[in-house]
Design a protein around this nucleic acid. Sequence first.
DNA 1: CCAGCAGCCTGAAAGC
DNA 2: TGCTTTCAGGCTGCTG
Length: 291
Amino acid sequence: MPELPEVETIRRQLDPQLRGAEIVGADAHWSDKFSPALDAIGSTITEVRRRGKYLLFALDEREAQLELVAHLGMTGSFHIEDASPTSGAHGNPEIGDIKVGNIKIDAFGPHCRALWRFADGRMLRFDDIRRFGRLRVVDAGDYAAIPTLSQMGPEPFDPAFTGKSLHSLVKKSNRAIKTQLLSQRPVAGVGNIYADEALFLAGIHPRSKRVGLERCVLLAETVRDVLQTGVDNGGTTLRDYVDATGRSGSNQHSLLAYGREGEPCVSCGTEMRSTVIDARTSTFCPTCQKH
DNA sequence: CCAGCAGCCTGAAAGC
DNA sequence: TGCTTTCAGGCTGCTG
């Protein structure tokens, strides 16, 4: 499931490839989640950014500055297709023949949800097996229609994210610390895997509702640590995640808590346990992680 | 305003 | 073997 490290890995691959790409056609799955892909037709990608788990494609459309906002959900992935060998008699795309408007996505597999065709003949494909992903074109920076994005907390590597900033939000809420991390409000980009990892390393029980300043300072550090390690390892692949080149990540080999129910804690040897918080499995060490 | 939760989705794996 | 059930979970939007 793509969290910050996975989305950042994809962003770093897409950005240099897509700068300057002019979108001359698009097609999408009929659903409201994906059909906004068509709104990007006629604009040029200037940059691929990231905010939390969202990919933001900056779009230049004559005078207007737009953004294609993409969330990968659970199983979303982006891939760049080279110029189709069937376009043009000698394998060269003939720009003049490219049709502006719909392109049938069916030919690109049962899980293709959107497809953008560029003036240079290349294509950007968005696959999403379970359709938890979402696409939207908005005025640049206008996230009013995307609640989670508009209320998103600081990026974990932003100096604005500190133990103190974390504590000031955490103390106002009566929700479990894990619920708060997943809300994206104290810090952007943390999902179920990295939340379990960060809480384990900080010695904090996922259900804890009382996390003082000292423990928040530690938690802010472990959040940054696990996300940085995730980025360094190219993301975590448990089931479906692949980067924009189709490769799996390797961070799954570094996980100390997530998915280790029944195995011994790497620190004290106690059997790791699982509980369900907000309909998500949470694995923790009952000895090391305190309320 | 906040907390809690149903609903969205498909495919792999487990259960019968 | 083949069918049914369970599980994975980020975000939206509704309810109390």
